[in-house]
């Protein structure tokens, strides 16, 4: 990974692995993790469309997922149905473009197989800039997102408008997933958002610690997957996804083992 040939893709993926789980924590808080897969699929479709029309692929991915984020306010009324529709629409459009535009075939494989090793400096600088913007915005958004979820009446009574914060966060998620999809592929991007946060929710003893756990699990799985995929000459995306699935299985098994060795748990004293 420190070979100059692979350093750029490694650094790009490392940024993805560090940043996306943090966004995933807030998506899970809002029970909107399916939106992540919808944005990733749309980003893939947008990238392919951009390639076919001779435009920068990152712009295409960011554009289509960004439009979906802006229109999400309408989608929220339909709950997960809306996200599922976006997901299958993005997938369907992508496959049709691949079938009818052979020139996009190479990009299509990169998007769906997750060929991190073919990313370049544009991906790295885009992801680095996004990481800086996301870190700054989430410092401001974090308390508002948590407050709106845990104390919705307090939030509303204080005259705070959830629409503005939701839109900003949704645009951030859409941007992050578009950039991640362009680097590590659709399903790997979704897995990085979903699985580390699932583990963090099981093991975290506070919100801060849970964010740290999610990021560390993601980074560890990423580094291992990067090395395995490189040494064994395997497509990176599936190796990362399976590494995360194994991490989740291990975490769940360890939690179960600890619970069993601790003995019966008293019933929760809740009415």
């Amino acid at each position: 990974m420190f070979d100059p040939m692979f350093f750029t893709p490694f650094a790009t993926g490392l940024l993805v692995a560090a940043v996306l789980p943090v966004l995933g924590m807030y998506l899970r808080l809002r029970e909107e993790w399916l939106a992540a897969l919808a944005f990733a699929q749309l980003a893939a479709a947008g990238s392919l469309a951009a390639a076919i029309f001779g435009m920068p692929v990152l712009i295409g991915g960011l554009g289509l997922s960004g439009m979906a984020a802006a229109g999400k306010a309408w989608l929220v009324r339909s709950g997960n149905n809306g996200y599922a529709m976006l997901m299958v629409a993005g997938w369907g459009a992508s496959i049709l473009m691949l079938a009818n535009a052979p020139l996009a075939d190479h990009l299509g494989h990169a998007l769906f197989d997750g060929q991190l090793y073919f990313t370049g400096r544009s991906h790295l600088w885009s992801m680095a800039a996004f990481a800086v913007v996301a870190a700054a915005l989430m410092q401001w958004l974090s308390r508002k997102l948590l407050l709106e979820r845990m104390f919705p009446d307090f939030f509303r009574a204080s005259g705070l408008s959830a629409t503005r914060f939701h839109l900003l966060f949704d645009l951030l998620v859409a941007g992050g997933l578009a950039l991640a999809t362009a680097s590590i592929g659709v399903m790997a991007a979704f897995a990085v958002v979903f699985i580390p946060t699932m583990i963090a929710y099981q093991w975290g003893r506070s919100w801060r610690r849970s964010i740290a756990i999610a990021a560390l699990v993601s980074i560890a799985a990423y580094v291992i997957a990067f090395e395995i995929a490189l040494v064994e000459d395997q497509p990176f995306g599936p190796v990362l996804v399976l590494a995360l699935v194994l991490a989740a299985a291990f975490a769940w098994s360890l939690k179960t083992l600890i619970a069993r060795s601790a003995g019966p748990v008293p019933a929760r004293r809740r009415p």
């Binding site: 963090a200 975290g204 003893r205 506070s206 919100w207 610690r209």
Partner: peptide, 9 residues
């Protein structure tokens, strides 16, 4: 819904 928040937070 199992949100990992502590009392202080």
């Amino acid at each position: 819904q199992d949100v990992p928040l502590c009392g202080r937070e």
